[in-house]
Structure formats: C-alpha cells, structure tokens
C-alpha cells in the first residue's frame, strides 16, 4: 500500500511549516494523499499521522467527517450531482435519474471500468446555473440530459483532461513563496520586501 512519494512528502513538510501547529496541515496533507492515490489508503492515512504525531485513528476520525475524503477507492471521475433546493426546483432529481441510467450505477456507485463514481451532493454554490454538477470539483451548470451525455463522452474520451484533472487533484497551484517565513510572525524590522521573486 502506498505511502507518500518523496515529492509529496516534501510538499507535506512544506505544508506543516505553514502553520503554527502541525496538526493544522492534516486536511491539506490528506488532499495530497487523495491526489496521489485517488482515495485515502490506510497507509496514506497512517503516514499522515506519523508526520503530525497523531494516532492513525485520529486521522481516520477526522478524514471521515468530511465528504470530500474517500476511505475506499472511487472512480477517476467523481460526478457530483447537486439536488439541493435551487437545483431541485430546476430538475435535479430528473438529472440524477438520468445520470444513474446513463452510468448504470446508483449514487455512491462506481462504474465497472473505474471511470466514474456518481454521488448526490448538497448545494455546490453554483445555483445560478441550476441544475448543476461537478466533476472532480470542476463545475458544470445548466445541465440537461443531452449535456450530461456529452459531458460523460468528453470525459471518457479525455477531451476535458486539461480542465478536469483526475479525482483527488484539488489545487494545482503550489505556494511558491513565503514557506519558510510562515510560522511565527516575522519581526517587524525593515528588511527589504522578502522573497520578492517574480511569479
């Protein structure tokens, strides 16, 4: 079972350095674990616990509180259909039914080829474009049945690979500066504006 790769371990250490207390980095690190493996493997969670000096049970207990973390494998594309009020009023139930039929799985299920996991979610704050859904937390609005089918085809064919990275990848922007200056507030001296590297 995978632990963090050397590169991800480095990222995790940088995250820990950002916070006054290491445990604050737990959720960001779990996002890295999920980015690496697609879900939170027991070894990945245990590794996070080691880095933060907390028991793996606490890692698991914390992770399991949050909807975005999966402690079992899910598909490459996590299709999250919102059925909360604004979407409900605009046909979300019908969209979800269609999605179930199209993908052949009930909410919570993963297609046999491991490509798609369907889930029904609470409001994703995209209500101006209801009914809407997210794939790997990239948002798609005003989705009718045909839109859904086209989306699934595009995803399966890899046509949206740039916009929709594999499940687990959340933030592709790495913090570039200020990592070491992070922890306690720097003394208020008059050093030149630090770490002013061009971005």
């Amino acid at each position: 079972m995978p632990r963090l790769t050397a590169e991800n371990l480095q990222r995790a250490r940088q995250l820990i350095a950002l916070y006054p207390q290491p445990r604050s980095a737990l959720i960001p690190i779990l996002h890295i674990v999920q980015e690496q493996d697609g879900w939170l493997t027991p070894d990945g969670m245990a590794h996070a616990g080691e880095l933060l000096d907390i028991d793996p049970a606490e890692v698991y207990g914390t992770a399991s509180f949050y909807d975005m973390f999966f402690t079992h494998p899910v598909g490459r594309h996590l299709v999250s259909v919102c059925t909360n009020l604004a979407c409900l009023l605009n046909g979300a139930d019908e969209l979800l039914e269609h999605a179930e039929a199209r993908l052949g799985v009930a909410p919570g299920g993963t297609t046999a080829d491991g490509q798609f996991t369907l889930e029904e979610v609470e409001c994703i704050a995209f209500c101006g474009a209801a009914p809407c859904l997210a794939v790997n937390w990239r948002f798609f609005g005003n989705i009718g049945n045909e839109d859904f089918d086209r989306l699934v085809d595009d995803l399966a064919a890899g046509r949206l690979a740039d916009d929709v990275p594999p499940h687990g990848t959340l933030n592709r922007v790495r913090r570039r500066v200020g990592l070491s200056a992070a922890a306690p507030a720097p003394a208020e001296d008059t050093d030149a504006p630090a770490q002013a590297r061009p971005s």
């Binding site: 500066v177 030149a192 630090a194 770490q195 002013a196 590297r197």
Partner: peptide, 9 residues
C-alpha cells in the same frame, strides 16, 4: 507575495 503585498514588511 511577489508584489510585496504579503510577507515581510
């Protein structure tokens, strides 16, 4: 950060 709006001074 690069612009100098976040960080030291």
């Amino acid at each position: 950060y690069a612009f100098g709006a976040i960080g030291r001074n």
